[in-house]
């Protein structure tokens, strides 16, 4: 009986995880694509030195996002780790996190009247640390120097 209950709980978690995760992902991608168009005017460079002259001011800007896996992704990635290969279930998750972090950074830069961010870097941090039994969540942070022109 307990086995049967476990199985039911497992199936419910899988279904909820899948549908909720899928819906959140679709909505997030729609929002990402729209805002990427909107913030296209703020350019991003990995160079350390500004590719222009006449800089009037600079400021540190950062965008940070914490993103968590859903139950379905977690099970799939767990099984995938037996066979190896591309962890497809996490690819979209991290893609969304990176792009969201850049968008938040760009929004901050635009608020400061900047149209250019240089020396952009990424940093990630695993929230549960190295505990394999814990949930999977990661912080992705993008930061750089926003320049304002004269």
């Amino acid at each position: 009986m307990a086995d049967f209950l476990d199985l039911i709980v497992f199936v419910i978690l899988m279904v909820v995880g899948y549908t909720a995760g899928r819906m959140a992902e679709r909505r997030h991608y729609r929002s990402i694509l729209a805002r990427e168009q909107e913030l296209g005017g703020v350019m991003v460079f990995s160079n350390r030195f500004p590719p222009l002259s006449g800089v009037r001011g600079q400021a540190l800007v950062a965008g940070s996002v914490v993103i968590s896996e859903d139950y379905f992704k977690r099970v799939v990635s767990g099984i995938q780790s037996i066979f190896g290969g591309r962890l497809r279930s996490y690819e979209s998750l991290l893609d969304r996190a990176r792009r969201e972090a850049v968008l938040r950074m760009k929004e901050e830069a635009r608020g400061k009247g900047s149209r250019m961010i240089v020396n952009v870097k990424f940093q990630t941090f695993s929230i549960p640390g190295r505990n394999p039994r814990s949930y999977g969540a990661v912080e992705v942070m993008a930061y750089g120097t926003a320049l304002t022109q004269a």
């Binding site: 350019m43 099970v75 799939v76 279930s89």
Partner: peptide, 25 residues
């Protein structure tokens, strides 16, 4: 200078997650 829009589907596989799951099962 320009930051062009990067095409979609480079960093993300197009495989349907359920198909992926069935393959693993």
């Amino acid at each position: 200078y320009r930051n062009p829009q990067v095409p979609e589907g480079i960093n993300v596989s197009a495989t349907h997650p359920l198909l992926d799951f069935l393959r693993l099962l």
